[in-house]
Amino acid sequence: MIKEKFDQYIRTVSFENAIDKTTKKYPYNIPSILALEKLKELDFHPNVTFVIGENGSGKSTLLEAIAVLYGFNPEGGSKNFNFTTKDTHSGLFEDINLIKGFRSPRDSFFLRAESFYNVASNIDALEEEGGAASLLDSYGGKSLHSQSHGESFMALALNRFRGKGLYILDEPEAALSPSRQLALLSRIHQLVEDDSQFIIATHSPILMAYPHAVIYNIDNGYEETKYTETDHYRVTKEFLMHPDKMLEMIFKKQV
């Protein structure tokens, strides 16, 4: 099911204020962030939007700003999480504006691979404080710290993501094997069918193969890119088809 654009939770991100190009401070020293001013607006797909690019290109910075502006904790979690381990998020959210759809999601979550440990710790702390119901029931019934990194990611997707939701995921493949990435892809499709929207920063050629999606490559501005034209697809395909040749080329470069 492909939703109509007006029916999605986040439609567009646009600039509210002009960027001060004289500053060299993070995040305004990242080319992709500076490029947003010229772009003016970035439209999101009703189902899945992928943001791709090299390490350091600004993917996580952009997703963080979108999440913070929407009301999420900068370190991740649901909108009810308000813990702070270290205040390192950028001020980019102050320079952007979100154009939302006419409906609000019933569920939402911001997943950051780099700070997921802190989210799991906060869940355990809240569980110890007690309440009317066990918080861990929403995460598979046991502490995320008692599971491997990959198992805890999948427990989150399978149990905590309830559908009719907005899910912002920053490199969710970080802890997942290829087979688990396929399982996550299946779960994403189930949730899209259940009226959910995803915004995902990723390096995974498996995840970005999802068909009902748009891919933005931010290495050279913000370019909408076909899956088969991404470096992730082409490099992976070339390596799998000709591993010996690719290894020989790589090792020769080191000489």
Score class of each variant (00 low, 15 high):
residue 1 M to I: 08
residue 6 F to P: 00
residue 6 F to M: 07
residue 8 Q to S: 15
residue 8 Q to H: 11
residue 9 Y to I: 06
residue 9 Y to R: 08
residue 12 T to H: 12
residue 14 S to D: 02
residue 16 E to I: 08
residue 16 E to P: 02
residue 16 E to K: 13
residue 19 I to A: 13
residue 21 K to L: 15
residue 28 Y to E: 10
residue 33 I to R: 04
residue 35 A to T: 07
residue 38 K to E: 05
residue 39 L to Y: 07
residue 41 E to K: 15
residue 44 F to K: 05
residue 49 T to V: 13
residue 51 V to H: 02
residue 53 G to P: 08
residue 53 G to I: 00
residue 54 E to T: 14
residue 54 E to L: 15
residue 56 G to K: 12
residue 57 S to L: 13
residue 58 G to K: 05
residue 67 A to Q: 03
residue 70 Y to G: 03
residue 70 Y to L: 02
residue 71 G to A: 13
residue 71 G to H: 09
residue 73 N to I: 11
residue 77 G to Q: 03
residue 86 K to F: 14
residue 91 G to E: 14
residue 92 L to N: 12
residue 94 E to P: 10
residue 96 I to Y: 10
residue 97 N to K: 15
residue 97 N to L: 15
residue 98 L to E: 00
residue 98 L to C: 02
residue 105 P to C: 13
residue 107 D to N: 14
residue 108 S to A: 14
residue 110 F to V: 02
residue 110 F to W: 07
residue 113 A to Q: 12
residue 113 A to R: 12
residue 116 F to I: 09
residue 117 Y to L: 10
residue 119 V to W: 06
residue 129 E to H: 11
residue 138 S to I: 10
residue 140 G to T: 07
residue 142 K to N: 05
residue 155 A to Y: 00
residue 156 L to I: 09
residue 157 A to Y: 04
residue 158 L to Q: 02
residue 159 N to E: 06
residue 162 R to C: 11
residue 163 G to E: 09
residue 164 K to W: 03
residue 166 L to A: 02
residue 168 I to G: 04
residue 174 A to M: 04
residue 177 S to D: 08
residue 180 R to I: 04
residue 184 L to H: 06
residue 185 L to A: 03
residue 189 H to D: 11
residue 190 Q to F: 07
residue 191 L to Y: 00
residue 191 L to A: 01
residue 191 L to P: 03
residue 195 D to S: 09
residue 195 D to M: 07
residue 199 I to A: 02
residue 199 I to P: 00
residue 203 H to N: 11
residue 206 I to S: 06
residue 207 L to R: 03
residue 209 A to W: 03
residue 209 A to T: 10
residue 210 Y to H: 14
residue 212 H to G: 05
residue 213 A to Q: 01
residue 218 I to C: 00
residue 220 N to T: 02
residue 220 N to G: 01
residue 220 N to M: 00
residue 226 K to E: 09
residue 227 Y to L: 04
residue 228 T to P: 03
residue 230 T to H: 07
residue 234 R to V: 08
residue 234 R to G: 02
residue 235 V to G: 00
residue 237 K to G: 07
residue 240 L to D: 00
residue 243 P to T: 08
residue 244 D to K: 15
residue 244 D to Q: 14
residue 250 I to D: 07
residue 252 K to H: 13
residue 253 K to C: 04
residue 254 Q to T: 09
residue 254 Q to D: 10
